[in-house]
Design a protein around this nucleic acid. Sequence first.
RNA 1: GCGCCCGUAGCUCAGCUGGAUAGAGCGCUACCCUCCGGAGGUAGAGGUCAGGGGUUCGAAUCCCUUCGGGCGCGCCA
Length: 604
Amino acid sequence: MLHHSPSDSAAPMNIFATLKSRIDAVIGDLMAEGVLPAGLDLSKVSAEPPRESAHGDVATNAAMVLAKPMQKAPKDLAALLAERFKKIPDVTEASVAGPGFINLKLADDIWRATLRDVLALGTAYGDANVGQGEPINVEYVSANPTGPMHVGHARGAVVGDALARLLAKAGFAVTKEYYINDAGGQVDHVARALRMRYLQVLGRISETDVQEALARKEIQYGGDYLIPPAQALAERDGDKWVSVVEEAQWVPQLREFTVAYMMNVIKDDLAALSVNHDVFTSEKKVMDAHKIEAAVKFLDEAGLVYTGTLPRPRGKAPEDWEPRPLLLFRASQFGDDIDRPLKKSTGDWTYFAGDTAYHKDKVDRGFLNLINIWGADHAGDVTRVKAALKALTNGEGHLDIMLCQMVRVLKNGEPVKMSKRAGTFVTMRDLIDEVGKDVVRFIMLTRKNDAPLDFDYAKVMEKSRENPVFYVQYAHARGRSVLRHAAEMFPGADLSDAGLAKADLARLTDGDEVGVLRRLAAWPRTVEGAALAHEPHRLAFYMYDLASQFHALWNKGNDAAQLRFLQSEDQSVSLARLALVRGVGLVIASGLAVFGVDPVEEMR
RNA sequence: GCGCCCGUAGCUCAGCUGGAUAGAGCGCUACCCUCCGGAGGUAGAGGUCAGGGGUUCGAAUCCCUUCGGGCGCGCCA
């Protein structure tokens, strides 16, 4: 995690960041004048929207934060600061409230100026610079190329992809990466299963034979998804592999074939979700390039590798456990419970050793900021990999490992039981085909990654307020609808964004209209906050809230005709309201863009 | 036994990295359609933020502890 505070960027369109820097400047002046002691730490001074809009437009805790080191009463200091804050441009009022908050009121024109920013910048409104062009690597999906992806993978894919887009919006130089686990025993098992299916395709054995081999555990993958690749293999090579018996003569070849085939399937599925990685790194290539040896040497030279014996595992202790000397990494020096093996007693590298080499590879490619999105079933590996990264970067690297909790699929209100053996798991493709990628993507982003998520087939297709996808899209569509009507009502008017920006926004006087403007003004800081916290789901809630305010405004027009957006007798007020409508649409569209969801023009 | 995540309205969840009187949706109660798409909207009731301690101007948020849930605990990948 980077240690930039939002104020580092002070993007001109982020009025809260602007206020924060102006507040800092005033305090700086007071220190220079000797009114306040020099050297005060301003990092905890905030400028944020108060929870109650009645409290004003911007609240700052400056007095409360600074009172302590000065040994003054917060309220006294607040009174002093408030006097000076009144002189800040655009501030019309500064008052002390509660335990020492200073509430600032801003000129209404500030909010209108925000709307002009939105219209001028389009979906770029909200772009931030907290990333300062810093490289960051987001690794996600990384599903084993042993079969089709399921709903759990879909969540990781969407969370990773949206986070990558969010970080890019916030000014980071993002690389989206996929680690292909093509070197371990699992891909060998798939190769064996593929050969069975291949023999079946050629008519040499029957489905029953395959199922019996599965029951005898001669093969570990029984799914019929291996039949298409088996057919492809038969088409390419004919019966070439029937007579090759020695495993060493066919396992590597068929493994390579399967991995290539499955990766194509996976990439197709990801493309259907609008997920595209920049870099695919092969575990096997990492190993073949002797990067494990290099990484272990690096750790060894730092004195972090030794040969020792692990304590007996707790909990369900394996029957055949016996103490054996192993090559170990001193993970316990970096917060792990025990040291972790780099080599098995067979002499082979462990998966962890390969992962360590892979992370060193990322570091060597220039990344000190790393994010890994994993399934929650890998929670046990988090500490050791973080430990390895610290060791590899002399403590300078930052690795955030985000665990995605379970996705529970509900059909007819009942959870769908998923079992790999029974072949009843819901694939990612099923989901996309059934509800569409936009719905899948949005729903996957309505919870924070470490909370379990219910995916209810019925609910996500529902056309009601309960369904956030619908509700947000509906707001966008309504906005487009108004624009279409406006074009008919005012044939000569310039309804482009640039044209609307010239509208007389002072005509926006209704409290709820200004309320929407305030919400729009909060978009940049929402983006920044979500990016720095690695929490894309915050944008889902922002969009829902904005949509809610917009629907409410729309409805007021139903009750009171003079509040409708379009007034045929008053083009001036219509254009001002259209500007607002368009601003809402643009901000929703930019939020949806982060989510990789296409905004709709109309509801069907 | 150990580690990680979690516990907020009857239910599903937010809570902007410590701020003011803890917020939405569903459900419940009472309302609003000759409308730019009511597939909506307005208002109300509903809370010892699991319990207990601590840190400080201030805690749902940070620390300790108890209780209750979920996930994971091989040299697998």
